[in-house]
Simulated scan of single mutants.
Amino acid sequence: MANNPAAPLNRKIALVTGAARGLGVEIARQLAARGAHVIVGARDGVKAEAVASDLRSQGLMASALQLDVTSDDDRRAAYLAIDQSHGRLDILVNNAGVLLDSPDAGMPATWRPSQTPVNVVRHTFEANFFAPLFLTQGLLPLLKRSAAGRVVNVSSIRGSLTHLSDPSSPVYPGHALAYDTSKAALNAFTVLIAEELRGTPIKVNAIHPGWLRTTMGGSQADMSVEEGARTAVQYASLDEQGATGGLFFLDERLPW
């Protein structure tokens, strides 16, 4: 429970984006169950409050934050709200994202890479790359006030150039230009910001949650959201000996 002083994340302040549905809800729940005060960030403030209220009804610590991660105004407002309420941020989970190349992750891309529409690429990059990049930059002063700041970028094995170029890889047939390249860009940002912050108390990692049974993942996926949230929570909870600047699925380091 939230008030257990032995809880591994006791009273740490954690912001989870895209936390009104699917994987985001479960990441928020698992972090709160480990003792964190979770800020449920979502574009729909009413849905964010519903998730936070449900967590509080279970005796956990949670609050809601209306946050469209693609909005400059919302990102600035998030900084001000967290600064005023908590004065710091211990954990940032950049979970919000979109898949526009196909109806779900179990289906091949609607377009060949050479034919992917401009608006699909731009909208995907706004949500999957620019939003977590700019949100992390904007919240970094609050993370620097933490004794052990943690940033988890929810990426994908589909952002691995090694896997995209390997015909034997399970993700090779997808050929989803917008989604795959946006996650590859997020991986590159992860490396660069982690190296900048190496030697500080802040650790930054990208994670592959697995192929999950969500609206985005599709009904054929082989993992539940409960299973998928474990990697995000694991890297949000790293101790001072933990890794930084990597792409992980549970304990496995994945190739870039």
Rank of each mutant, 00 (worst) to 15 (best):
H175D: 12
Y172S: 12
A184M: 11
L143Y: 01
S182I: 05
F134Q: 15
S156H: 05
Y179R: 06
F189W: 11
E196M: 10
G159E: 05
N153R: 02
L139D: 00
Y179P: 06
T136E: 01
L139P: 01
S168V: 10
P201K: 09
N187G: 08
T200D: 02
P170R: 13
K144V: 07
Y172R: 12
F134M: 14
A185M: 05
L135H: 01
L192M: 13
A147G: 15
P201V: 10
P201F: 07
A184P: 06
S155I: 05
P167A: 11
A176F: 06
S146A: 09
G199L: 03
S169K: 02
G138V: 05
I193E: 04
L197Y: 08
Y179G: 02
S155L: 02
A194Q: 02
T162N: 13
L143G: 01
N153D: 08
L142W: 01
G199E: 09
R158Y: 09
E195L: 14
E195Y: 11
V191M: 12
R198Y: 10
T200A: 06
Y172G: 03
Y179K: 06
N128G: 03
L139Q: 03
H175V: 12
A148H: 10
V154Q: 02
K144E: 15
A184H: 09
P201W: 06
P173T: 06
N153T: 07
A194H: 01
L143D: 07
T162E: 14
H175R: 15
T162K: 13
S165P: 01
L143A: 07
P141M: 08
L135C: 03
V152A: 01
E196W: 09
A176C: 12
L192K: 14
A185C: 07
N153K: 03
A127R: 00
F134H: 15
G174S: 13
H163E: 15
R158C: 15
G138W: 00
S160I: 09
S169E: 04
V152T: 05
L192W: 11
A147M: 11
F129P: 03
V191G: 08
K144M: 13
